[in-house]
Amino acid sequence: MTSASAVPSRIIHIAAALLIRPDGQTLLVRKRGTSAFMQPGGKIEADELPVHALARELEEELGLLIDPTQATFLGQFSAPAANEPGFVVQAEIFQLSIDAQVSPAAEIEEVLWIDPATDGDVILAPLTRDLILPFYRASLAASA
Rank of each mutant, 00 (worst) to 15 (best):
S9Q: 06
R10G: 10
R10M: 14
I12K: 13
I14A: 02
A17W: 04
A17S: 09
L19Q: 12
L19K: 13
P22C: 05
D23S: 10
D23Q: 09
G24M: 12
G24E: 08
Q25V: 00
T26H: 07
R30A: 06
G33N: 14
G33M: 07
T34L: 08
S35Y: 08
A36K: 07
A36E: 14
F37I: 02
Q39I: 00
G41D: 11
G42T: 01
K43F: 02
K43R: 12
E45P: 14
A46K: 09
A46N: 13
E48M: 07
L49Q: 12
P50G: 08
P50C: 09
A53R: 04
R56N: 13
R56M: 09
E57V: 00
L58T: 04
L58A: 11
E60Q: 15
E61K: 13
L62C: 08
L62D: 11
L64C: 07
L64K: 03
L65W: 10
D67M: 05
D67V: 00
Q70L: 15
Q70T: 08
F73L: 14
Q76R: 12
F77E: 11
F77P: 11
S78P: 09
A79T: 01
A79E: 10
P80G: 12
A81T: 00
A81C: 07
A81K: 02
N83S: 08
E84I: 00
E84L: 12
G86Y: 05
F87H: 10
F87T: 00
L96V: 01
S97T: 04
I98P: 15
I98A: 07
D99L: 02
D99N: 14
Q101K: 05
P104F: 05
A105F: 08
I108L: 13
E109P: 14
E110V: 02
V111L: 10
I114G: 03
D115G: 08
P116K: 04
P116R: 03
G120V: 01
G120M: 04
D121E: 13
V122K: 07
A125N: 12
L127E: 11
L127N: 13
R129F: 03
D130S: 15
P134R: 06
F135K: 02
F135A: 02
Y136T: 00
A138T: 00
A138D: 01
A142H: 01
